[in-house]
């Protein structure tokens, strides 16, 4: 495992920590899209179907369990926690799941590496992850006074995918036959979706003003 991959995973993990911290410390999930969180949970469930059948390393298994566990914990906080669930911006978080899930499912049925249920579901999770941030980005644009932790959370999620691209470049040059078109193109699309956010995030950080996205 190279340094970019490890850094990517750690940043991804940190994004979960920041999100749970924000929700728990403020007892509020204001500005967080439940739709994006549900889509991420679906992504992890679909991708880690091989959790018990395909052992790669202790590291991989542990991280998969942590990602799954944290995703479900966040869903519980946002949907089931008495105090926190009333802070959810239900009226603002209006993105339709089907606009994302359906095209990704169709694409996975059409473009995949092997015609097996496991492979198609895995490919679906790759496509869905690329676009799962969209409800969150739309909600951010609608939210006035984005708090720092929410901004940092989205930044870390984008950074994670950016680091994975460096990891793929590194692997392409160091590992023979390492070519992963589906993963690479999806990962690049996923990272591009963050570029606009990055621009405003870095600008607000440099000017030392509160993050606000133009609507």
């Amino acid at each position: 495992m190279n340094i970019f991959r490890l850094a990517g995973d750690m940043v991804h993990l940190l994004s979960f920590v920041v999100l749970v911290l924000k929700i728990n410390a403020t007892k509020s999930c204001r500005g967080i899209s439940l739709k994006t969180q549900e889509l991420y949970t679906l992504v992890f469930v679909c991708r880690y179907l091989d959790l018990f059948s395909n052992f790669i390393s202790m590291y991989n298994t542990t991280m998969k369990i942590v990602f799954l566990g944290t995703s479900f914990a966040i869903l519980y906080l946002m949907r089931g926690h008495k105090v926190i669930k009333v802070t959810y911006d239900r009226e603002q978080d209006t993105f339709r799941y089907l606009f994302l899930v359906l095209p990704c499912a169709l694409l996975a049925l059409l473009i995949h590496n092997a015609w097996t249920p496991f492979e198609v579901v895995w490919t679906f999770s790759i496509y869905l992850e690329a676009v799962a941030i969209l409800p969150q980005l739309v909600l951010l644009q609608r939210t006035q006074n984005i708090d720092n932790l929410t901004g940092n959370y989205v930044f870390l999620l984008g950074l994670y995918r950016g680091l994975y691209i460096l990891n793929w470049i590194y692997r392409y040059f160091t590992e023979p036959h390492y070519i992963q078109w589906i993963v690479w193109i999806s990962g690049i699309v996923q990272t591009i979706l963050y570029l606009d956010f990055f621009y405003y995030y870095i600008k607000s950080w440099k000017n030392n003003v509160k993050l606000a996205l133009p609507s």
Binding site: R5, D50, K64, Q180
Partner: peptide, 10 residues
């Protein structure tokens, strides 16, 4: 071998 390689990322 490549099947395993493909699934070693999170």
């Amino acid at each position: 071998e490549r099947e395993d390689l493909k699934k070693d990322e999170l």
